[in-house]
Design a protein around this nucleic acid. Sequence first.
DNA 1: AAAAAAC
Length: 500
Amino acid sequence: MSDTASPSVQPDLAGAEPAPPARFDTLPLDPKLLRAVADSGYLTMTPIQAKAIPIVLQGRDVMGAAQTGTGKTAAFSIPLLQRMLKHENPSVSPARHPVRALVLAPTRELADQVAENVKKYAKHTNLRSVVVFGGVDMKPQTAALKAGVEVLIATPGRLLDHIEAKNCVLNQVEYVVLDEADRMLDIGFLPDLQRILSFLPKARQTLLFSATFSPEIKRLAQSYLQDPILVETARPNQTASTVEQRFISATDDDKRAIIKQILKERSIRQAIVFGNSKLGVARLARAFERDGLRTAALHGDKSQDERLKSLEAFKRGEMDVLVATDVAARGLDIADLPAVFNFDVPFNAEDYVHRIGRTGRAGASGLAVTLVTKSDARLIADIEKLIKREIVLDTFELENERPRFERRSREDAPDRQERQERYERPDRPLRATSPALRTPAPSADPFFNKPYEASSRDEPPAWEKAKAATPVKGLSSYIKPKKQVAALFGAKKPAAPAES
DNA sequence: AAAAAAC
């Protein structure tokens, strides 16, 4: 109820009481940390920080769920640094300091980003931190580890390498953080994670943070925590209300043109386009590049050097579009990203929440467009269940129906030149420097069917209503068909309620 | 139907 009043103004740091947000300087923090926080320009805490920091300071285990972009990294790193400072033993030679805090993250880029934050908050202290991840030379990491660090940030594989090479000793770790904890605990990561945890003392403080926690993961997580406190802000798995979410029914052939048209008509400066596969992402990136968009690609088949370069170029604004797999779905903090497109609907509903969390960060507004084909119905239903919001598919009018090739024999296939002309001319150019993109967006929204209702999040979930009303299995109970969409999805008339 | 994380 509390946030229906000003949905467009108040970022969805929901759970926030109307009370003024607490300031960092009201916390019992070392002046060195307070100074670093102030240097970063932060004055007041976000809800997850206000709730989690005091509990972490008490030494309790925490499972923290909060929307993306609400400062989870600071929520664990600041109080952990405080605890490490408080128990610092200055008589020990720095070189002999063992690793005291370990932070694990599921992707290299995320580990790097967390490490940057930790460095920022620790800069006035003598606590040293280092980040280790794969795909880059081990030697500098080894040297840093041997010199001694108090805070180690890592991805699992490379950390195990260092453990086996005896480059680091983890038997005195006092604090462990699993960032994007639900991913770290999923089946692909679990064996490595268990192995790593087996090297750590049992008596320690453990913190798990993520935007999404499935019930199964919550249960599994219990076994790694001692008497944990669950810290939640708003509903878990929620998406920020500052993000306008659109779902557009599309065919595979039209997806790219739809994205380009939205970019142009909404004058969108920059966007991430998510695809489900590495190959698909690489192809799509090449296609956007041919279209004249400055495009970077980010996926696991690229070298780490290329990955870092792509991301940096995008962050510097030198790229219009970043096409990425789910390697970029979680945690990455790209300031003021205006839009996210799901070229493919993600396989896991949780990943939807994480993907669109790249936009609308820190209370900014954002647009998230998901392109939905006929075969995506099941996935859309999953998303609807997870985010507990009704999903309505919009139709989209392409301004220039793109010329299509008829199937031809190989001999009379168009040569490259002709192909270029027929394929590309209609909607070129689209680069950010083109006048088309500078034009202000039209006041009426010509290509979406209905205005976004931020307050719909407060209504009872549509899927529950639908489930109660119609025992229809599959899509029609989850996706409310509009007329064209109904045809596309072959939706039937809802059956009369059969049960009594 | 995939991706990520080590060499």
